[in-house]
Nucleic acid binder design. Structure first.
Lengths: 192, 192, 192, 192
DNA sequence: TCTTAAACGAGACGGTACGTCTAGTCTTCTA
DNA sequence: TAGAAGACTAGACGTACCGTCTCGTTTAAGA
């Protein structure tokens, strides 16, 4: 029943840091989002940031999660194709937003270096989305709508992989019709 | 017929830098591959590195290209499926090697920040591979082996995207049978 | 009544820098007293030095002033000759100490390049000494002990100039009896 | 009787180096007269400079000697006072020229660090001038024009020291009448 | 109301790496 | 063989952030 003694953590400071970090990341990428700059922009002491986040990457990750809306609901009563298109399209739509794209790119880049960030990204971002869509697909397999011997993991990769591929390499835009094309092409196959 | 004046560039230094950089990148990632460390390890002056490479990212990129074997030949006289599996499998095999994987991850991460690096990666790495496989697919379309209305770009993304997706997020390994699964699933589709 | 915010300046660091700089200057001259070496020897960050001193020359100057005792008192109740000998002798004695001589030589050398240093040396070192002795001489002139048409500035130069001349060119030592000789010769003249 | 094999030393290069060095020294002091800058300005290879001069200081010294006219003749048939004034005045006149003053200041500064330079300056510059004037004074002493117990070295310091003192500290200008004042004041003394 | 203790801002600190500069040396071709 | 060109190693330069630290100053819960 004891409540913590002393001055409570400042919510104002927490939000100011996440906001400043997100803005800096979007404007100038990881290079611009130095601890010094985040602290200055947030009007917060560096020590305060270090008290609550262990590294720059964690601040970036938190900014990303804070700025990005949930968008993961699976609607009932729709065809398999429509459901998949909705799911993949939702992610594509998110990544089409330049600010979100920027944050996601930086987060992936940081994750290559920091295992902490990578596992958080995996647990809190990647897996839930894959699991949701994989569930849809497994249900369809049980109903006989798709073949039973499908490699579900590979199928997830073929739906989501292209989005990150285009996000990171930018060889093609993440246009409106991409989700539809990916889903249709995967379900029907290329053979005539 | 004129020969260049002055002392010629030292091939020894060039190779030592690329080697040192690659080793450091593999061992400790971009964080370990400081210019200072590369110079020390290569037994080369920092000034010499800056003379020939504009940034750390460029050295990393060059290391990657130097360390990575060509692996892009398209063999004649094989079925479409076998050709695609061979191509995708070649890249998967490359990225399965921990050292190459490490270099590739760092290169992609750097590319998010440095547009120079990104365009070099695009021009010298991504496009040739996509173009080769796209050619194979377009030939097959002309012969009527696959549908004519295929979105070739999306198809390339569905073959290569999953590889980079697994490389960068590490949610699943890049195992031996992945290429085969990806190709078969894409050609035949998931429908029964 | 407001007290300064933040961590207060470290007196330990300030003294360590001045000490290290003085030692290095004495041991190996300006060439040895690099910022890098001073920082290393003082166990202080280079950034800290640059924060408080704008250049190497300023550190050298400060070292000199810190290491050099005041020695400028004018005693009352003595003959003109004795007073002058005491004053000139005090400076000669200071410059006879190898460490002080070394610091002074470096400081003069630096002053040739850096106007800041030169003016500080002028204001804080040269002028007070000249003024003190010039005062003694002007009093004597008023009392009629010396001629009234003396060029006081030139007289100062004839007393102090020889000391610096010997310090910098080292053609003759700054021996014990120099001050006495200079004063006597100046007062009495060379004529029989 | 053998004449040297190969291409003879280029007098053009030697003069170009000394000229470039002197100009740079006058314009921006020792800081501006880098080997790089001298070589570039002279249109000469750095290696060539290092071949003939052991250090930057030596080039500076040589520039100084090359640029500075002899001015050391002792005229016969004049009073002691006039002879001394002529000698001291000649040096003062030289040091009044801003370019020469600049070169001399830099040379003295360098001499504090480089013993080679110091000894060259002593041998080729200081001693001859002092010896010439000391000779004049000793002759006068023999003729009984001045006292016999004069400290000649100190007397030289009282004539020349003030000039260098003013040159290096710049507390007073090296004006036209300085030589006369110094000589008269020294010969007659300050006493009434 | 007063104490107490954690959180806060400010900012100085020891470090590390940055990218630049100059010193000297070395290597090649040309005169 | 001297010289010009210019690449090389070595190492200091001054700057920018890092992550830590020491201050004096809030701020709310508990006494």
């Amino acid at each position: 029943m004891s409540s913590p003694r002393g001055r409570p953590r400042s919510e104002r400071a927490r939000l100011a840091v996440l906001d400043a970090a997100a803005d800096l990341l979007i404007e100038g990428g990881m290079a611009a989002a130095t601890m010094e700059a985040i602290a200055a922009r947030a009007g917060v002491s560096k020590a305060t940031i270090y008290k609550w986040w262990p590294s720059r990457g964690h601040v970036a990750l938190d900014s990303f999660f804070t700025r990005t809306k949930p968008t993961m609901a699976v609607e009932a009563g729709a065809t398999l194709e429509d459901t998949l298109i909705a799911q993949v399209g939702a992610l594509a739509g998110l990544l089409r937003d330049p600010a979100t794209a920027s944050l996601m790119r930086e987060t992936v880049a940081v994750a290559q270096t920091d295992p902490d960030i990578r596992s958080a990204l995996d647990t809190r971002w990647l897996r839930p989305r894959r699991a949701a869509v994989e569930g849809v697909l497994r249900d369809a397999a049980e109903r006989g709508e798709i073949r039973a011997d499908v490699d579900f993991a590979a199928a997830m990769d073929q739906l989501f992989g292209p989005l990150y591929y285009r996000l990171l390499f930018r060889h093609e835009p993440l246009d409106e019709r991409l989700a539809e094309t990916l889903v249709r092409q995967m379900l029907a196959g290329l053979s005539p």
